[in-house]
């Protein structure tokens, strides 16, 4: 369909929380080094789907899934697949900025240290580079030893992005990364996304249609038919086409309703 590499592929994914079916028969191919947006009404399973890509749903006790998720052609749910390696390759930025209650420096160095990097010079380098990439370096370079909690919300979120970048992932998952931020901070993150997509494959969940339209290259629209029904993908394609000329009328209704 599109002449691109697909780094992440989902095939026939169905997911249950206990007896509740949250996702049904999801299939999607996420293009490489582009930004893909997941949009859809609240509760349709966007976060759930996103958390399948780095197996964060493992943390949830009664969560079962069928179908497969491939990263670079390998089934990440296969037996013997290394979850920690997966999560290093597939970073995640959460809805609420969640820095550790440590200094700015220690937050960024957390990931590299996990992988056994101890040398001060190496760490210094990684910290600076990650903060630069996250467009935060100028603001914090003189207070690296201060608690991260003292930063503003927008700065904290960029710190969390920098923290992910420090692990050198290939894919970055973002679950409504701007929903706790004001328009100015949001703008900065969007600028940052445009920069980051040169090197990373990014999936972003958002409720903000403008943001999806502005910032993403591809868009997937998820929906539930009714309360208690599972979520499924209604339409997936290039963002421009989805927003200007949706094939499915449910997509159109949702988008126009949201824009209106």
């Amino acid at each position: 369909m599109y002449n691109l590499d697909y780094r992440l592929e989902v095939e026939g994914l169905t997911l249950h929380y206990g007896n509740f079916k949250a996702l049904e028969n999801i299939s999607v191919k996420v293009p490489n080094e582009r930004i893909t947006a997941f949009i859809g009404p609240s509760g349709c399973g966007k976060s759930t789907l996103l958390r399948c890509f780095n197996r964060m749903n493992d943390l949830i006790d009664d969560c079962k899934l069928e179908g497969s998720v491939f990263l670079d052609g390998e089934d990440i749910n296969g037996s013997g697949y290394d979850v920690t390696a997966l999560r290093r390759n597939v970073g995640m930025v959460f809805q609420k900025p969640n820095p550790f209650p440590k200094t700015i420096y220690d937050n960024i160095a957390y990931g590299p240290r996990l992988n056994g990097k101890k040398d001060k010079l190496t760490l210094d380098g990684i910290v600076e580079e990650s903060l630069r990439k996250a467009a935060l370096w100028k603001e914090v370079k003189n207070k690296l030893r201060e608690p991260a909690m003292r930063l503003s919300g927008g700065q904290q979120q960029r710190l969390c992005i920098a923290r992910v970048l420090a692990v050198e992932p290939e894919v970055i998952l973002m679950d409504e990364p701007c929903s706790a931020l004001d328009p100015v901070a949001t703008q900065r993150i969007e600028d940052l996304l445009a920069e980051l997509k040169k090197y990373y494959t990014i999936i972003i969940v958002t409720h903000n249609m403008q943001q999806a339209a502005r910032a993403s290259d591809y868009t997937a629209f998820l929906m539930i038919e009714d309360e208690g029904e599972p979520g499924c993908i209604v339409e997936f394609g290039e963002t421009e086409r989805i927003f200007t000329n949706p094939e499915d009328e449910r997509t159109e209704k949702y988008i126009t309703g949201r824009f209106g």
């Binding site: 999560r87 609420k96 550790f100």
Partner: peptide, 15 residues
């Protein structure tokens, strides 16, 4: 502790 702390760490590939 906020559950986000645990998630943040695990999501970075920590054991």
């Amino acid at each position: 502790l906020p559950p986000e702390l645990e998630e943040a760490s695990l999501a970075m590939g920590a054991t």
